[in-house]
């Protein structure tokens, strides 16, 4: 459905996209994950034919994407990172206006507008101006303006930035609902939890390059970490660290601010072995966590830095 080949975009000496290759299938929720400045928004802007790029090819629905490819544009809906609505128009007028840029026919447009209002739960706010809405409601209006025309492909660029947890959950549920109704979704975010929660396939971007791509299980299987054990409130000597490092399946140990982090490969009984050692050495400790690897661990192992850095 979407094919991005060898895409290169430079801003002077800065390479924003470095031979980016992506392929997105119809019906999936495709996550673009990466820290700020990794090239997610630039990739989206190139995909939408807004930005000139230096090299590469972009195909959407089997056609090369150009600014005047209006037939393709008709089937795309975009929810931008920053809220993009008219302050001078009410909620209903905004949705109706943007829907009208895609759909002709007053009756059809009206029906689609009402459906979009219902979908994002803004029925009680239709006459309000954007400045009268809370941050969460404003985000919902932003989404409604992008999806009112019921597009085949929806691109969502960090739609949950600065949104309260309740609104965030509603937005994520809405995205899944749209996908169930048949829309293909490209979802960019730097919140790995969100991407893990809703995306069927994920590409991790860093410095304009796609460093890993696949389902979340596939991505996690690419790294060594099978289990991460965190021990809080622990008081121990540095000399104990080599002993822990020598425990079976342990490949990385860090001790900072009375917190011990032990990374082990995917084997059983790692936690038992670590706790036994601490008991043997009579080392006091507070809370203990054992976690399976996250996308942050994937990013950390591949790039050597945290996703949130």
């Amino acid at each position: 459905m979407i094919k991005i080949e060898n895409l290169v975009k430079r801003y002077g000496p800065l390479v924003a996209l470095d031979h980016l290759n992506l392929e997105i299938e119809e019906g999936e929720i495709f996550g673009l994950l990466g820290p700020n400045g990794s090239g997610k928004t630039t990739a989206i802007s190139c995909l939408l034919a807004l930005l000139k790029y230096d090299k590469g090819n972009i195909e959407v629905f089997g056609k090369t994407m150009t600014p005047d490819n209006y037939e393709v544009k008709k089937q795309i809906g975009v929810v931008l990172q920053n809220v993009a609505v008219f302050d001078e128009m009410s909620v209903r007028e905004n949705i109706d206006y943007f829907c009208g840029l895609y759909v002709s026919g007053k009756e059809k447009r009206k029906a689609l507008t009402e459906e979009a209002i219902r979908f994002v739960g803004l029925e009680d706010y239709t006459k309000m101006r954007p400045r009268q809405l809370s941050g969460g409601l404003l985000r919902r209006l932003n989404i409604a303006c992008g999806i009112a025309h019921q597009p085949r492909l929806i691109i969502m660029d960090e739609p949950t930035v600065a949104v309260d947890p309740q609104s965030r959950n509603k937005i994520l549920e809405g995205i899944k609902e749209l996908n169930r109704k048949g829309a293909t979704i490209i979802y960019t975010s730097h919140y790995m939890e969100e991407v893990e929660q809703i995306c069927s396939r994920i590409a991790i971007l860093d410095h304009g390059r796609c460093i890993a791509q696949g389902t979340k299980e596939e991505l996690k299987s690419m790294i060594k970490t099978g289990e991460k054990i965190t021990v809080e409130g622990i008081l121990m000597e540095e000399e104990n660290l080599p002993d822990i490092r020598n425990l079976p399946h342990v490949f990385d140990v860090t001790y900072e601010n009375q917190e011990l982090t032990v990374r082990c490969s995917g084997a059983k009984h790692n936690l038992v072995r670590v706790l036994n050692y601490l008991q043997e050495k009579d080392i006091a400790f507070g809370r203990v966590f054992s976690e399976l690897p996250t996308l942050n661990d994937v990013f950390l192992e591949i790039t050597g830095k945290e996703l949130r850095d």
Binding site: A49, L50, Y70, K73, L101
Partner: peptide, 18 residues
């Protein structure tokens, strides 16, 4: 102008002739 505001970006990516 899409390089001036997000609202212009949203309008620029619609199928309405520029």
């Amino acid at each position: 102008q899409a390089n001036l505001s997000t609202l212009a970006i949203r309008r620029s990516i619609t199928p309405t002739h520029r």
